[in-house]
Amino acid sequence: MTLLGDVAGWFADPAHWQGTHGIPTRIVEHLELSGLAVAVAIVLSVPLALYLGHVGRGGFVAINVANIGRALPSLALLAFALPIAIALGLGLGFWPTLFALVPLAIPPILTSTFVAVREVDRDVVDAARGMGLRESQILRAIEIPLGLPLILDGMRTASVNVVATATLGAIVAGGALGRFIVDGLALQDYPQLVAGALLVALLAVATEVSFAAFARATAPAGMTANP
């Protein structure tokens, strides 16, 4: 009970809510890093996955990317990213963490976007083509809207992974919420450690929940049980 009291005390201390080491700053850093990593991953993988899914090629590659992605441990990605960032003169902290997060986010987005487009009922696509829709129109008007739930699902998996892994950035002198955990561990400062863990866990759960809400809100009418 004393630990929980200490954690509450840590949160109550106004000093922890101010300045460049304060909770708000760390949350903003965490969201910036995660958001940028997911955005870069989307830009790199969604157009490719939409194209491959539409023409129906590259399924083998898309599925295998997902399996390789699972085999890449997050700390190993960070380990590979660090020398690259150093060699490029980008230093510690933000950049090597970003380099580690982008490849982590690509596999779920690439695979689920590919599958989402591929799994759209071929009869519907055939009917659209038969009525004279151009290929780009088929993709925009049929395949993307119908595949949206699955596409968002991939982005949700990627985002939750990225938010979780961004914590590790603190090991390479990054900011974000991992700072509290890594410092807490190093200093044996348990209130700070547990408070940091709590913040990271809440952010991860919040990411998961808000994606689920967003997916519900954007689900195409007619594809839910009660439209």
């Binding site: 979780a164 914590t167 450690l193 990271v200 759960v205």
Partner: peptide, 17 residues
């Protein structure tokens, strides 16, 4: 599912004390 969503480092941090 909740256990799975909690970042690994955070879960270890909860347990260390």
């Amino acid at each position: 599912g909740i256990l799975y969503t909690i970042p690994s480092l955070a879960l270890f941090a909860f347990l260390v004390p």
